[in-house]
Simulated scan of single mutants.
Amino acid sequence: MASSAVYQVTTMKVKILQWHAVASWTWDAQDETCGICRMAFDGCCPDCKFPGDECPIIWGACNHAFHLHCILKWVNSQTSTPLCPMCRREWQFKG
């Protein structure tokens, strides 16, 4: 016994009246926290009130990442050639 079915396709147009976008950002670092202050990279260092452009992440030539303020304090506190706080290689900002 053969049966046949008939399908009807209708097209509906939709008009968008409003659109609200939501976005989030995150730093692309290998670690989730600064190796100096141990605060999360998606947050901010102890010297800052808000995360983002005022508290960026800085990478060294050795690929270790730190909050800008944390690594600047670290480098300025060294009496001799500054070393990376993580691997102890000579600290150089990644260029």
Rank of each mutant, 00 (worst) to 15 (best):
L17K: 07
L17T: 02
Q18A: 15
W19C: 12
W19V: 11
H20Q: 15
A21S: 12
V22A: 15
A23V: 08
A23D: 00
A23N: 04
A23Q: 03
W25P: 00
W25L: 09
T26K: 09
W27K: 04
D28M: 05
D28R: 09
A29R: 13
Q30M: 13
D31N: 14
D31F: 13
D31W: 11
E32W: 11
E32I: 08
E32Q: 14
E32Y: 13
T33K: 15
T33M: 15
T33W: 09
G35H: 13
I36M: 12
I36Y: 13
I36D: 11
I36S: 10
C37Y: 08
R38A: 06
R38N: 07
M39P: 02
M39E: 04
A40R: 07
F41H: 00
D42T: 02
G43R: 00
C45W: 03
C45Q: 05
C45N: 04
C45M: 03
P46T: 01
P46E: 02
P46Y: 00
D47F: 04
D47I: 01
C48P: 05
K49Q: 10
F50E: 03
F50H: 02
F50T: 05
P51K: 12
P51Y: 10
P51C: 13
G52W: 12
G52F: 08
D53C: 11
